[in-house]
Design a protein around this nucleic acid. Structure first.
Length: 884
RNA sequence: GCGCGGUUAGCUCAGUGGUAGAGCACUGCCUUGACACGGCAGGGGUCACAGGUUCGAACCCUGUAUCGCGCACCA
């Protein structure tokens, strides 16, 4: 390539390089490699999923780690895949079925329905995988896994059998979170408490033993009165102490006003409501426990879909639970026992998937008593696994400390079937029973059948449990069951896990326990928790708000690299990110800036990949740049050490844009027709080569295009070694700093007099050091000088600008009268005097001089001297102006 | 209720005890030999508030306010 286009056009090169990387097998991990291993398993996105900005952030970080590891000499495995996502996927296919064929899954039957889900998966699933490729993700696609792959699925079932044999998995009738829309049980983690504005209804119940005497009960759920089997008070509550053991009459249903006992239970808060609690063991967790303690009967008045059943009475049967609430309040009012309705805000658990209130429901489910909880806590506490940021350690520990058994069965069809078999076929076949899976379970528990827990069917006459497992019960094996023995030996435990803090319990914690239980090792060494991406108002990105930009649109507009770099630059460790498209614009601009810097270099001739600046006598600017490159490499390496991705991006941004483009390239423009040419070009090539390497993890497409286009090598950047922090061959440059600063002062002066920045000026200077004259060509360029000449004393009618390289004089003839300059100088003198006063006050303080570290005091003294010198220069300038 | 995190320039955010920073936005000048997706210069901040520790606090401590996020069986 001899010429580059004027602007970087990502769309023209991205696909080309991605294909090239894949052809060369650069993403593929070889377990037999002699190189040290580095591994990451992808948090498997839902097979139904499409790429979101959250995915972009998460996967870009993983790609950065993977590419950086390759460059630092590791054999890298980044293992990709997708998750079968039980509820989400089943829902998608059911919706399609209803829409296109007006059928439910029950119309098709289990086997046929599952066939349809697989068809859907093959046709529409895994869009996100193609999108990850557009983003540039360097996953080992030969190893793409799916949580329902045959081998993986078998492992999931084997783990179930194993944990069952160990007595950690058991079946029991418990209070679970029931989703009336998905018609399945959920784990506690899938329930999101949301504040709800409702009412607290007060109603009276009559004491059976004392007719005419009433107790006042407060409830938010009057629709469950029909399921009440007691009324409870706190035994320590003086208001009700004599009433325990007496009875009240339940008002609903009106045709069956049962007699309920009054029980005493410590769970009742007497500060809440009236201190009298209605006890509904079938529909509330606390009530259920009270029921157990007092051996109360359980009346289940709800159908699985959240409608009332016949036990609720003829007025309610068939009503939805929320309609029933209105109806119940009406009935209480009709009966004249409704005392008041007061507005009340409380938290109600919502189903994460279906976004409807979950129903606490007594049902037969499979539960897991977590293995290796103590070991998991220790692993994080003792830093066998490090969390970044580390504050999540506390959250993790707190969860494990209070951990509850995990409800792992789901009343779905799509997922890993529970490997439990029952002998007795006549009424149990799920194919021939009613449409409600919950009903099936009831039948099972009632039959005294023989039960076996094993993967394969024990033979004819055995029927498998109709439930499937929670999706997370398969993903918790992801870190090790995705690898064959050779890969495990090389790449396990994995090096890092990158994920959002929202799945710390769902996934991270459980994977640690599974890893410890089944490999005897932690599954990963480091966990990096990303922030959550929000919109400019700080709201979470969501489909319904329409505030979630499509990353593919952003890639089309700004390039994958622009998106990656722009996003990463604003993603500080562990903080949520307020997304603004402007940030991506800046990422794109940065890519273009580097592109043009390289374009400029190419205009001076071909690059030398082996350029070695130490072979040349270097300008002060070149030495300075090399020193800054060295500092940047260190900053970047430190960033990788600490997972500070935005720091790395910022360090590279500052170096490329500020140090390299704004300063060095501008300074270099005076060198091309001078003896400095060779040294300057060598420095430029040396630095560009390293910039491309350092930047490659963040902007892989751009850097690969430039690497190859400029002729640095025929290998991929991924295969070439990461730059070492070289101790700079020449000491860092105070002279260059002084020259840059002087240019800045001079331009400021020019601006003060409204002199257009392109007007050529006949500058004069009285230099402060010998070396300054050697830099006249570069300085003249900086100053946009018509000429730059030395003068011994201040010329008449000129504005003076004291700098570290000497006093610069700007001729003012024909531009402005000298009185204006006098004013300007006076103003500047006043400013400097104020600074001197500030430092002097500090140094006059004995306590400061006596107590502060000597270095700090010395620093202040130095500063005072600098200001004094500047003051004298300014005063001299003023006096000479007045004299001249 | 308990815990965690945030509060610094108009906006988004860096900044772990010693002169308050960056990018964007804004103002002015500039299409100068890569880049207007650009260059140069400039204006703009009682570091949420109140106490405390210290010679010295954006930074450490205590409390308050406020926003966000977890956890929690007040129905």
């Amino acid at each position: 390539m001899s010429e580059l286009s004027k602007a970087y056009e990502p769309g023209l090169v991205e696909d080309k390089w991605y294909a090239w990387w894949q052809e060369r097998g650069l993403f593929h991990a070889d377990p037999a490699s002699p190189k040290p291993g580095y591994s990451i398993v992808i948090p498997p996105p839902n097979v139904t999923g499409v790429l979101t900005l959250g995915h972009v952030l998460n996967n870009t970080i993983q790609d950065i780690l993977a590419r950086h590891a390759r460059q630092t000499g590791h054999e890298v495995l980044w293992l990709p895949g997708t998750d079968h996502a039980g509820i989400a996927t089943q829902t998608v296919v059911e919706r399609k079925l209803r829409k296109e064929e007006k059928m439910t899954r029950h119309d098709l039957g289990r086997e046929e329905f599952l066939k349809r889900v697989w068809e859907w998966k093959e046709k529409h699933g895994g869009i996100i995988i193609r999108q990850l490729k557009k983003l540039g993700c360097s996953c080992d696609w030969q190893r793409e896994r799916f949580t329902m792959d045959e081998a993986y699925a078998r492992k999931v079932q084997e783990v179930f059998v194993d944990l069952h044999a160990k007595g950690l998995i058991y079946r029991g009738k418990r209070m679970v979170n029931w989703c009336p829309v998905s018609l399945t049980a959920l784990s506690d983690e899938e329930v999101i408490p949301k504040p709800q504005k409702g009412y607290l209804y007060h109603f009276r119940v009559e004491l059976v033993e004392r007719p005419g005497t009433f107790l006042e009960v407060a409830t938010t759920r009057p629709e469950t009165i029909m399921g009440d089997t007691a009324v409870a008070v706190n035994p320590k509550d003086p208001r009700y102490v004599g009433l325990i053991g007496l009875h009240v009459r339940r008002p609903l249903p009106v045709e069956d006003q049962a007699i309920l006992p009054i029980v005493g239970d410590d769970a009742v808060e007497f500060a809440f409501g009236t201190g009298v609690l209605k006890v509904t063991p079938a529909h509330d967790k606390t009530d259920y426990e009270i029921g157990l303690r007092h051996k109360l009967p359980v009346i289940d008045i709800l159908n699985p879909d959240g409608t009332m059943n016949e036990l609720a009475g003829e007025d309610f049967a068939g009503l939805d639970r929320f309609e029933a609430r209105v109806e119940a309040v009406d009935k209480l009012r009709e009966l004249g026992i409704l005392v008041k309705e007061e507005p009340h805000e409380n938290h109600v658990g919502f189903s994460e998937r279906a976004d409807v209130p979950v129903e606490p429901r007594l049902s037969e489910q499979w539960f897991l008593k977590y293995p290796k909880t103590a070991e998991a806590r220790a692993a994080v506490r003792d830093h066998l696994i490090r969390f970044f940021p580390d504050r999540w350690e506390k959250v993790f520990d707190h969860w494990l400390e209070n951990i509850q058994d995990w409800c792992i069965s789901r009343q779905l069809w799509w997922g890993h079937r529970i490997p439990v078999w029952t002998k007795k076929c006549s009424v149990l076949s799920s194919q021939c029973s009613g449409p409600d899976p919950a009903e099936n379970r009831t039948l099972k528990t009632e039959s005294p059948d023989e039960v076996r827990c094993q993967v394969e069917s024990p033979g004819d006459g055995w029927v498998q449990d109709s439930d499937v497992l929670d999706t997370w019960f398969s993903s918790w094996l992801w870190a090790h069951e995705t690898m064959e023995p050779a890969a495990l030996a090389k790449f396990y435990p994995t090096s890092a896990l990158v994920t959002g803090p929202d799945i710390i319990f769902f996934w991270v914690a459980r994977m640690i326990m599974a890893g410890l239980e089944y490999t005897g090792e932690v599954p990963f060494r480091s966990v990096y928790f990303t922030g959550i991406i929000r919109d400019r108002q700080g709201r979470k990105m969501s489909k319904s708000l329409g505030n979630s930009p499509d990353p593919l649109d952003l890639i089309a507009k700004y390039g994958a690299d622009g998106l990656r770099f722009g996003l990463l630059r604003i993603a500080p460790q562990g903080q949520d990110i307020k997304f603004d498209e402007q940030q991506i614009v800046e990422g794109r601009n940065f890519c273009n800036k580097l592109w043009n810097a390289c374009r400029f270099r190419l205009m001076q001739g071909a690059v030398d990949p082996a350029a070695d600046p130490t072979q040349h006598e270097l300008s002060i600017f070149a030495s300075d740049l090399l020193a800054k490159l060295d500092a940047t490499i260190r900053r970047v390496n430190d960033g990788y050490e600490a997972f500070r991705f935005s720091d790395i991006a910022q360090a590279l941004y500052d170096f490329v844009w500020g140090d390299f483009c704004d300063r060095f390239i501008e300074a270099s423009k005076a060198d091309f027709e001078s003896p400095r040419r060779a040294g300057t070009l060598a420095t430029m090539d040396f630095v560009i080569l390293r910039i491309l390497k350092l930047l490659h993890p963040y902007t892989p497409f751009l850097t690969e295009e430039l690497w190859n286009g400029l002729g640095f090598g025929s290998q991929s950047l991924m295969e070439v070694a990461w730059p070492e922090p070289c101790t700079s061959p020449v000491a860092p440059g105070p002279r260059a700093e002084a020259a840059y600063a002087a240019a800045s002062h001079a331009r400021n002066l020019r601006a003060t007099y409204n002199i257009p920045s392109n007007k050529r000026i006949a500058w004069k200077i009285s230099p402060s050091a010998d070396w300054v004259e050697q830099e006249f060509p570069t300085l003249a360029l900086f100053l946009c000088a018509e000429s730059l000449t030395v003068c011994d004393s201040a010329p008449a009618g000129a504005a003076a600008c004291p700098t570290d390289i000497g006093i610069l004089y700007l001729p003012l003839e024909g531009i402005v009268d000298a009185s204006g300059e006098a004013k300007r100088l006076e103003a500047e003198i006043a400013k400097v005097e104020a600074e001197i006063e500030k430092v002097a006050r500090k140094l006059a303080s004995e306590s400061f001089v006596n107590n502060a570290p000597p270095a700090v005091v010395a620093d202040h003294r130095q500063r005072q001297q600098d200001w004094m010198r500047r003051l004298i220069e300014l005063q001299t300038a003023r006096d000479s102006l007045a004299g001249g």
